[in-house]
């Protein structure tokens, strides 16, 4: 008997969902629950990925960002709730932490800028985050955030150009691509700076 591919995938996805929620049901510790929510995000992406069209991809990207942003907010709530207020000391002390970040971060940021859009923002943001993590930082927190806010506004402008003045689509696509790049990158890299320290 030939099992249709989609149904097989769904079977696995449903089963994975059941198992993940079973673990969630049995779990009482707050941190373990946080880790399990991350697992559940993966399973929910599996549902979308099974569609397998271009639309699926366009749905996965927002789904991904939603999952991460909620995780950021929740982890911060957990930290405050448990009263972990002493900032951590310097991280891992191994040699590659001095050599790798510069090159890798540069590669990732350049590549991210080439990619642009969501994917580029995330990739470049990861690069910046990794760099800030290893090298410390004394950036202006507000400055990055402001840049991110303005780029968000630019993206909204681009959206309305698409909807109201579609003949300027070319301007809109460039604007939105770069605005989302800056926005996502800024947000993601800011996580790296939220580790206590003088000016965070």
């Amino acid at each position: 008997m030939i099992i249709p591919e989609y149904s097989l995938g769904l079977l696995v996805a449903f089963a994975a969902m059941g198992v993940a929620f079973f673990a969630m049901m049995r779990e009482t510790d707050g941190f373990h629950r946080l880790l399990l929510t991350d697992l559940i995000e993966v399973v929910s992406l599996a549902f979308i990925a099974l569609i397998g069209t271009d639309l699926a991809e366009a749905l996965i990207l927002p789904g991904l960002v939603v999952g991460t942003s909620e995780l950021i907010a929740l982890s911060e709530i957990y930290r405050i709730k448990e009263g972990y207020t002493r900032p951590p000391d310097a991280g891992l002390q191994i040699e590659v932490m001095e050599s790798a970040p510069g090159i890798l971060a540069a590669l990732l940021v350049v590549y991210g800028i080439v990619l642009s859009g969501f994917s580029g923002g995330v990739v470049a943001g990861l690069g910046v985050l990794f760099y800030l993590l290893c090298r410390g930082h004394d950036e202006r927190f507000e400055l990055i955030e402001t840049a991110s806010g303005y780029s968000w506004a630019l993206w909204i402008v681009a959206f309305f150009i698409f909807m109201i003045l579609p003949q300027y689509w070319f301007f809109a696509v460039m604007l939105s691509g770069s605005a989302i790049l800056v926005k996502v990158m800024a947000k993601m890299s800011l996580i790296g700076t939220m580790r206590g320290g003088p000016n965070a």
């Binding site: 991280g91 891992l92 191994i94 590659v96 932490m97 790798a100 890798l104 590669l107 990732l108 590549y111 990739v123 990861l126 990794f130």
Partner: peptide, 19 residues
């Protein structure tokens, strides 16, 4: 290429917790 470069970064993040 991207995946191969990001995977070790991810591992380094985990290592911070492992230590």
């Amino acid at each position: 290429i991207a995946a191969a470069l990001i995977a070790p970064i991810s591992t380094i993040f985990v290592l911070m917790a492992v230590r």
